[in-house]
Simulated assay, not measured.
Amino acid sequence: MEPAAKKALMDDLDLFVKRREYFKRVGRAWKRGYLLYGPPGTGKSSLVAAVANYLKFDIYDLQLSNVNSDFMLRNVLMGIKNRSVLVIEDIDCSIALPDRSIPANSARPKQDPKITLSGLLNFIDGMWSSCGDERIIIFTTNHKDRLDPALLRPGRMDMHIHMSYLTMNGFKTLASTYLEINHQHWRFREIEELLGSVEATPAEVAEELMRTCDADACLRGLVNFLKDKKRKRTIVESGEDASPGAETTDGDDTTPGVELIPKAKKIKTNGLQDVFCHK
Rank of each mutant, 00 (worst) to 15 (best):
W186K: 13
E199N: 15
L209F: 02
E193M: 10
E180R: 14
I191Q: 02
C213G: 01
V198F: 07
E204D: 10
L194I: 10
V205G: 03
V205A: 05
L209P: 01
V205Q: 04
A206Y: 00
L179H: 06
E207R: 04
E208S: 08
T212A: 07
E180H: 14
A206F: 01
T201D: 08
P202A: 05
E192A: 15
P202Q: 05
E192H: 13
A203N: 04
Q184N: 13
L195W: 05
M210H: 00
P202C: 06
E204A: 12
L195V: 05
G196A: 11
S197E: 14
R189K: 15
V198I: 13
R187V: 01
V205D: 02
T212W: 08
I181K: 09
Y178Q: 12
R189V: 13
H183N: 12
L179F: 06
T212I: 06
L209D: 02
E204N: 02
L195Q: 05
L195I: 06
R189W: 06
L194K: 11
T212M: 06
Y178T: 03
E193S: 11
E180L: 11
I181D: 09
A200N: 07
H185T: 04
R187Y: 12
E204G: 08
N182L: 01
E180N: 15
E192I: 04
M210F: 00
H185M: 05
R211D: 00
L209A: 03
Y178I: 09
I181S: 09
S197N: 12
H185A: 05
I191R: 03
E193V: 06
N182D: 13
M210T: 03
R189C: 08
V198M: 07
L195E: 04
M210D: 00
Q184Y: 09
L179T: 04
L209M: 03
F188T: 07
R189G: 07
E190A: 15
F188M: 14
E190H: 14
H183C: 10
A206H: 00
E193Q: 12
N182A: 01
Y178G: 02
C213I: 00
T201Q: 09
G196E: 11
N182G: 12
L179K: 09
T212F: 07
E192V: 04
N182I: 03
S197T: 15
A206E: 11
A206R: 09
Y178R: 13
R189L: 12
C213R: 06
Q184D: 14
A203L: 04
L194E: 10
I191N: 03
V205K: 06
E190N: 14
Y178L: 13
G196K: 11
L195F: 05
E190L: 15
R211E: 07
Y178E: 14
S197Y: 02
V198S: 07
Y178M: 10
L179E: 05
